[in-house]
Amino acid sequence: MKKTKRSIPVEFILMILSLALFGAFVLFVRHYYARILDAAENDSTAPYHTYSRQYEMIADSRSNTFWQAVYDRASLEAAESDAYLSLNQTGWNTDFDKLDYIDMFIAARADGIILEYNGEEGLAEKIDEAVEQGIPVVTIINDPNRTRRQSFVGVNDYQLGNAYGAEVARLADENTHNILVLSNREKELEKNQMYAQIYKAVTDAHPGQNIRVKEQNLNSRGQFDVEEAVRNIFQSAEGMPEILVCLDEVTTECAYQAMVDFNMVGEVRIIGFYTSDTILDAVQKGLIPVTIYMDADQIGTYCIEALTEYAETGRTNTYYTVDLHAMTTEDLQTAEEEELSGEVQDE
């Protein structure tokens, strides 16, 4: 009987063990299945956040990283004002052009459109149509003057001419005779003022010197046109200009690549646009002496500011000016040194 007395706790230990096992089993099953279901989660089942407004940003895919930077900033700002911003880019992966996109978002009744205006035919009318349908439009980079767009965010030709002019003047020397400005735009957007400013700046800096400022509009519509056009320039019989001014990111990268490929480093000086990784790398190595860039954060912020203000008050600034900066090899080296010394101090 004593044995029995000892054996009774055994059954209760086993009972507790059994219950514990059961609990462990339940926990395991629940946890495991939750994990499986989590793993199986996708866009359609993932948790999401809802917003009260939907903004659409329409841009070219030509300046991928630049637009991505603008979009990143703008979507953060949008989220803060309870709106969701999508980025729609024309390019290789879609048959739609900007007209199509505007049509679509008019039909889908978006709450605001941010448009990189490029002077495309019919785009100005589409902007007006959207505005008529009650969808505010903010244009960026280029300003369609004769439209009813709510606001413009970007730089004007004067600013641009000043910035480029200053850099051209700085880079030009006594051997500089030809300056080629490579633009990539619709015919409508003539930038004569800008060329005039570049010309004025460079001739002011080098008076009496025979300097010609030429403009070539690549006006590319196809996918690889820019690359081919730039290479053609490098192979042209006329010979290369001493200074090549690029007004967008893709042109800059193509020109840089062509310069390296044709072994013309030092013979051609490129003034780039924007600060993609490739361009920054080239600037740091001194292969591109300077690059001009717009403040992408400012663009993103102002776009959303304009749309939010319009949504809330029914009116907004018609013009937001963003800052233009120039980044030179020296700037980058200084920054690097500062960073290094900062790290040393940290240590």
């Binding site: 866009d43 956040h49 709106a83 999508s86 039909a107």
Partner: peptide, 19 residues
Amino acid sequence: VTDNPVMLLEKNIRRMSES
């Protein structure tokens, strides 16, 4: 309006379908 691309697409389809 959501930040879920699938749902946003659904919303766009719905609105556009109405148009």
